[in-house]
């Protein structure tokens, strides 16, 4: 593990009796990186984050943060981390301002009040009201502000934009970008794949507790498959261009959208026989990649 590695897990596994939490997770997150952590509900995203923070103890394997074992050196590790839980719970009778003071005092590094004020202004949050008087979205904003206010070296965010209006969502993404520009690191778990694509450098995809892919967002969206929209002079019959690795997604007269995983040369060879007027390479979103991953995995599981 080099000095730039912020998080490194080795065969990290958690079992709850016979129930699987996560299994042999090996991932590394580098300094200054925004690492997206994707997976469906119950895949093990939150469990992984909780093990990194030593909230849950691993059954097997270990997690190192800043080179320190999160189990043995938990306090030292958590001194550099702030965390926004996915299921955020706050003290309802407290004022938001008192909540920030409490967390600031527990983090032992003093609270940068002017930065906190900036955060609250950007999130349009009134800190003087009691937490129970805030709406669900505003409570989430309190959690977001609490996660960013400490200016920690590593920020772990579990579904940070859930329940937020689009403007606040954008503010959160801007804050995440600013952390990266500052040379700090963000571990970003989300279901909102558009925002993951917007801010993350790399993503880890987890399914049934296992990390099935870790890749740069850019590489992932380029490599997995292509979306080609071909306009033909003469409309091909429905099965005329059927071949391995090529899937017809939609058809509008002589304009057909293909998803091409392999066999692009064969497709082109056949396509020219119908006369190609135009080819457009459609961008593939991370969401489509993600769905393709899970679609394929489900099929494989069925075949198994």
């Amino acid at each position: 593990m080099n000095s730039k590695t912020i998080i490194q897990t080795r065969n990290l596994s958690v079992y709850y009796g016979t129930h699987r939490g996560i299994k042999d997770i090996n991932l590394s997150v580098q300094k200054g990186e925004i690492f997206g952590f994707l997976g469906p509900n119950g895949a093990g995203k939150t469990t992984t984050q909780r093990v990194i923070l030593d909230i849950i103890h691993p059954t097997k394997g270990s997690a190192f943060v800043f080179g320190l074992d999160s189990r043995k050196d938990g306090i030292a590790v958590r001194r550099h981390i702030s965390y926004l839980p996915g299921e955020l719970s706050l003290y309802p009778s407290m004022r938001a301002s008192s909540f920030f003071d409490l967390l600031g005092s527990l983090q032992n590094n003093g609270l940068n009040k002017s930065y906190l004020r900036q955060l609250l202004e950007r999130l349009e949050l009134d800190p003087n009201r009691k937490i129970k008087e805030h709406s669900h979205g505003n409570k989430q904003k309190i959690g977001v502000a609490a996660a960013f206010m400490g200016e920690k070296d590593l920020i772990i965010l579990d579904e940070p934009t859930i329940g937020l209006d689009p403007l606040a969502q954008q503010t959160v993404l801007e804050l995440v970008q600013e952390v990266k520009e500052d040379g700090r690191t963000v571990f970003f778990s989300s279901h909102n794949l558009k925002e993951v694509q917007e801010v993350c450098d790399r993503v880890g995809i987890i399914q049934n507790g296992e990390l099935i892919k870790t890749e740069k967002v850019e590489t992932l969206t380029k490599q997995q498959f292509k979306r080609l929209e071909i306009t033909f002079r003469k409309e091909p019959s429905p099965d005329a261009l059927a071949m391995k690795g090529v899937k017809e997604i939609s058809r509008d007269g002589n304009q057909i959208l293909f998803e091409v995983a392999e066999g692009l040369d064969q497709l082109m060879e056949k396509a020219v026989t119908y006369g190609v007027i135009d080819i457009e390479n459609k961008a593939v979103s991370l969401e489509e990649i993600f769905l393709a991953f899970y679609g394929r995995s489900k099929k494989e599981a069925k075949n198994d």
């Binding site: 909230i55 306090i75 001194r79 839980p85 299921e87 955020l88 719970s89 967390l103 527990l106 983090q107």
Partner: peptide
């Protein structure tokens, strides 16, 4: 159960 303990154990406290 209420979830506030998760916030506390994520702090740099033993």
């Amino acid at each position: 159960e209420s979830g506030t303990l998760e916030l506390l154990v994520a702090m740099p406290l033993s």
